[in-house]
Every structure is written in structure tokens, then in C-alpha cells.
Nucleic acid binder design. Structure first.
Length: 207
DNA sequence: AGTAGGATAATCT
DNA sequence: GATTATCCTACTG
């Protein structure tokens, strides 16, 4: 059986479904919270995917994407939200999988205290909600999720059955690449985030 | 159930 | 100066 590192070294859109049912453990901020992943999205590397942060090459923000598979890529967006990715593919390819949603399976009380206004179903239902519940911020950018970090990823023992897997367009991606079917999630999971198309760009008025 | 608008700042053009 | 791999609240039906 291949090592987790080897499994994550494949193309992002092949690695993504392997992350479903994986368990992400956070021991950040002195508490333990574990989430079972239920929804992910794949993003390819330089020049290969207009929707990817790495599409136009390396910058200060996306530097972690150019590291080896299994590293965390954490970015800040919309002025207030952190989102967590798992770096995939061969070294320096700069592809990654965005962890979009999960179910809290341990540390429910801590998770609730971190998102007091949220229902249990919504605790980790969305990429920025997931990081809130796990207390993930930019401080975790670049850490090894497969090592002895306070943020660790453990893959599921068996791949998801095809009947349990749904594949749909990526959420929130505008422009070219918006229709790429690279969003993978479990069927019949309450914690899967509702699909939202990218905010429509202003159009010229039609007569 | 679904949709609309505002929050809020790093990043990139 | 525009955009953003989002979330929340407040509305309508």
C-alpha cells in the first residue's frame, strides 16, 4: 500500500476524491478538534488552470503550493477568511486540493464555542467555517500535514464507493475554469456546502 | 427555499 | 483600482 505522501503526489483531480472521509486533527489553541472531510475541490498548477492561485506562477502568497505534497497551503481571502488546502502533485507542480467542508467528529464542544452562532450542521460547512472550527490561520501555511504537526491529516482506510461520490463544478470560481468538474463531495451528507456560482460580474445593460 | 447586499483587506493589475 | 477558491444577515415567498 502506497504511503500517504505518495498518494498525495498524484494530479490534484485524482487526489481530491481520496481526501473524502479523511480525518483532519487540530491541536491548535490548546484544544483538540477532529473533522471528517466531506467536500473538496481540485486546483491545478502553473499555466494549467485559470482558476488556480498558481496559474500565473509563484508569488509570496502561493509559495507553499510549490512545496512537496502533503504541505498545507493556507490563504486569506475576502478580507476576513482563511482557507486550507493540501498541496498535491509532484514537487513544484503547485497543484492543491481545497478542503471545503467536513463534519466535526471530535471536540464538538470546542467547535461550538469557536462558532457560537452556528448550528452543528453548519460548524464546518464551508472552507472558511472549517478553518474557524479548527483554529487554522496563516500561521499554519506551509506546515507538513503528514508530520507531527498540531494540524494533521489521516487518509481514510478505503476509497469512497462510486455511488457515494458526487462530482460537480467548482464553487466561487469565475471566468475560465468555472465549469470544470473538479468539486468532489459525498452524497447524502448534511455538511456539504450549498453550491454557489461565482458572483456575477457586472454586465453591460441589454436593450 | 432562495436571493441580495454588506463586511473587509490582501493581492494583483 | 478591481477582484476575491466567503460568510452572515435580512429579506421574500
Amino acid at each position: 500500500m502506497p504511503s500517504p505522501r505518495a498518494l498525495l503526489s498524484g494530479p490534484a483531480h485524482e487526489v481530491a476524491p481520496l481526501l473524502l472521509h479523511a480525518r483532519l486533527t487540530s491541536e491548535l489553541d490548546g484544544a483538540r478538534v477532529v473533522v471528517r472531510i466531506t467536500e473538496v475541490e481540485a486546483y491545478a498548477g502553473v499555466g494549467a488552470d485559470p482558476g488556480s492561485h498558481a496559474h500565473r506562477g509563484r508569488t509570496a502568497r502561493n509559495a507553499s503550493m510549490f512545496g512537496r505534497a502533503g504541505l498545507a497551503y493556507v490563504y486569506f481571502t475576502y478580507g476576513m477568511h482563511w482557507c486550507l488546502n493540501v498541496v498535491t502533485g509532484p514537487q513544484s507542480e503547485a497543484s492543491a486540493v481545497l478542503l471545503r467542508a467536513g463534519e466535526v467528529v471530535e471536540g464538538l464542544d470546542v467547535a461550538r464555542s469557536r462558532r457560537p452562532r452556528s448550528s452543528d450542521r453548519d460548524l464546518a460547512r464551508g472552507p472558511a467555517r472549517l478553518t474557524q472550527v479548527l483554529a487554522v490561520t496563516g500561521e499554519q501555511d506551509g506546515i507538513d500535514l503528514l508530520g507531527r504537526s498540531p494540524l494533521r491529516l489521516r487518509l481514510a482506510s478505503a476509497p469512497v464507493e462510486p455511488e457515494a461520490l458526487l462530482i460537480t463544478p467548482r464553487t466561487g470560481v469565475s471566468g475560465a475554469g468555472a465549469d470544470t468538474l473538479w468539486r468532489f463531495h459525498l452524497r447524502d451528507e448534511a455538511s456539504v456546502s450549498p453550491y454557489r456560482s461565482a458572483k456575477p460580474r457586472p454586465r453591460t445593460a441589454r436593450s
